[in-house]
Design a protein around this nucleic acid. Structure first.
Lengths: 196, 196
DNA sequence: CGTCTATTTGAATGTACTCAAAAGCGGTGG
DNA sequence: CCACCGCTTTTGAGTACATTCAAATAGACG
């Protein structure tokens, strides 16, 4: 049970659980270890699990029709990742989900989630709250893309996730922020020069 | 009660209700009529209601530090609108929410929603499902902004919401899609010329 | 109608992209 | 432990997509 502690703590932040509820919840989970560069979701296949990151770093991305990657989500410790659309509606994925570092995941599959919600409706509240936060974050990111320049978005990210800045390859960060790796390099270079 | 039928139908799409539940839910609602250009939310004030559009058209937008408007959401019949962050966390709004047409709203205030969730946990499921759909839609829009050109985004919108195309002023549509009104005009002009 | 707001048009500009090549860096095997 | 290979980052020149600003035109509403 020890190994499921992080996710249980996460759930307890949002709802209270009896011992029975906790045990049932944990019984639906499984541990998965993935190595750097390994894919856990890919286009055409249905995304069967929602994955909670215990340790490590994951990302979800697409490849557009020009062959360019666009990072739709990043997830470090205590975050969730997957192809959201594919998981919720159990339709073929459009994203790749890969490990950027060796990563330890705790996974809940779709059937498990369904059973959990049917037998323990208390978890509806848990998912409702986490979805509120997800929606709020997505809206903020959209707003940022609509109203800010590339450099402003970079600064915003650097301020919000300083610990991530040196953990993610720059070409991936660029694809997350919505511009090219070359341009990110130029933004950084400009900042270095300014400091002198 | 008649006037609350649209919203009740909307809820019934996602969860089943007993007569008691339906009556209690409706007791928490109120009808609001807003005229074109009228604001129902503005920055600094807390967004107290979640608004369901019965008839008409609303939009949520911000004004950035250069004085430009960015439309974060549009809502026609059978959609919800508000300053999501402000409503969920009951913090000061950052958006304006205004009517683009004379609009009939049904509103649920924050306290009402809280009471509803506390006394009728069944509604957790309702909000969970609607939030799943909201998140999925936001993610798709973000993806579109990350990976597509202005013209492609316009085409996508035109295909997805043909009925909205001639109902929204073009400068607002442009601010929703993430480019300027002038550029939208040029995109449209180009299309007209191609047809000849 | 007249006025106010929205759309169009054009020229100049800017931000970010493309492509290609060089430099840097990190891991792996000999 | 060093040399090499592959991947990431940097650099620069040329380009493209989209913006800005200003003025003209078209539309909507009282």
């Amino acid at each position: 049970m020890e190994e499921f502690l992080p996710i249980v703590k996460y759930v307890l932040k949002h709802i209270q659980l009896t011992e029975e509820e906790e045990i049932f919840f944990v019984s639906l989970l499984r541990i998965t270890k993935v190595k750097k560069k390994q894919l856990i979701v890919q286009p055409e296949f249905v995304c069967k699990h929602s994955s909670y990151v215990v340790a490590g770093l994951m990302r979800a991305y697409i490849i557009d029709n020009k062959g360019k990657e666009h990072t739709i989500a990043l997830a470090i410790e205590d975050w969730w990742i997957g192809d959201f659309n594919s998981f919720i509606f159990q339709t073929p994925a459009t994203f790749f989900v890969e490990a950027l570092e060796d990563t330890l995941l705790i996974q809940l599959d779709y059937e498990g989630r369904q059973r959990l919600l049917e037998t323990h409706p208390k978890f509806e509240k848990f998912f409702r709250i986490t979805l509120e936060r997800l929606s709020a974050a997505l809206q903020q990111r959209l707003l940022s893309n609509l109203s800010k320049s590339a450099e402003q978005r970079y600064d915003e990210f650097a301020k919000k996730y300083p610990q991530l800045l040196n953990r993610i390859p720059q070409y991936i960060l660029a694809s997350y922020l919505g511009f090219t790796a070359e341009f990110l390099s130029k933004i950084r270079n400009k900042k270095v020069k300014k400091l002198k």
